[in-house]
Write a protein that binds this DNA or RNA. Structure first.
Lengths: 205, 205
DNA sequence: GGATATACCTACATCGCTGTATGTAAAGTA
DNA sequence: TACTTTACATACAGCGATGTAGGTATATCC
């Protein structure tokens, strides 16, 4: 068969990744064979094995190509020394919802990570990465809520640890419910309203 | 081999189900073979095929044996005509968290449904059942929050639709985070505090 | 107490999927 | 231009899992 140029090879690689993303999302990771992916990408399994060591490597390339919402959230909220940490976090959270609602690829990849793969031995590293992202998120949020409390910005009704858990739980629940149930509500609109309501409660004196 | 009595057969069936639960939870549904289950249960694959048509039927028997938290929530909250619907729901939600925190079997089954199975073609009915449970939950909660608003019990800050979404998202987020991350916080304690904080906000005038 | 259904176990046949080894034509390189 | 490397395709070998057919010994029923 004809050897293609470098650019064409990169295109092939992307076609494989795209096909894998679609099929993983539609049928689940374990239930998708490399043969199916190859067919959908218009190549043979040989091409896949050329670009990726095996299915796990392909899966890894897929989820390493996108940023998780948790990572997004942390990166933007980590700017320390803010005079209004709660306001900042509220803004960042709403932006995060809006961003996810607009980026279909990340929706699919995140949905795959959430629902379409059981974390077996080798896939477990994907879970580990999420754990890590969550851990740093928790650490940052803990600092942030503690700061807010110290500055008298947090309602005494909300111990920092509880507020932090409530916030992360709500964010996770919004992502999960929206992705799982065919995006059947307005994530950017209603979701942001939920977050705003919660933060109003955080600030109430 | 010796045929066992009816009671013994039922015991065998339960041993198979228990082994499947453990292995599905530990390794994922797709990555668990009937041979592994049989070995863990101390029988051969023949016994499994005697009691269950195939792996899907075994999986179905597993999740049909337990009630989902959503179903729990709805059933208890559906008692109409309550003078304090918000108080009732708050109580029910906290009870629900407490119940889940105490029942290890339901934790495992629910975790399997959430994380350990990709919803392929035949397993999809499990997802369908969850969808149904969620739909009735949403319907009931919508009525409940609408009632609360009509009776002036709901803060004007919280439109009923937003409040309902915020509540379900928080509950889902609590379940998910707790089950996913090795139960690394006190679901009954901190979780209930989160719910209570939210409901205080719901009621604020 | 004999017939029959039950509750398994054993053995086998099959099949899809994986991984690898080999082939090959074009692109790059000196 | 000769050689090498790249980017695949093709072919093959092997395994693990599934489903089923057939055997067997014991409960259960009449």
């Amino acid at each position: 068969m004809a050897r293609s140029t470098k650019a064409a090879a990169e295109k092939t690689r992307r076609r494989i990744l795209d096909a894998a993303e679609q099929l993983f999302y539609a049928n689940g990771v374990a239930q998708t064979s490399l043969e199916q992916i190859a067919e959908a990408a218009g190549v043979t399994r040989g091409a896949i094995y050329w670009h990726f060591a095996d299915k796990v490597a392909l899966f890894r390339a897929l989820y390493e190509g996108v940023r998780l919402p948790q990572e997004d959230l942390v990166e933007q909220a980590a700017t320390g020394g803010n005079p209004d940490p709660l306001g900042l976090l509220e803004q960042v959270a709403c932006d995060c919802l809006k961003t996810l609602a607009a980026d279909q690829q990340r929706q699919r990849v995140f949905a795959i990570l959430l629902f379409r793969c059981d974390y077996l031995g080798e896939m477990a590293e994907a879970l580990a990465r999420q754990n890590e992202a969550d851990a740093t998120m928790h650490a940052n949020l803990t600092r942030l809520f503690a700061m807010a409390e110290r500055d008298g910005l947090l309602s005494p009704r909300w111990p920092p640890a509880v507020a932090e858990r409530a916030f992360t739980a709500m964010m996770r629940g919004l992502w999960v419910d929206w992705l799982r149930y065919e995006r059947n509500f307005d994530l950017a609109g209603v979701g942001s309203d939920c977050v705003k309501g919660l933060f109003q409660s955080f600030r109430a004196r």
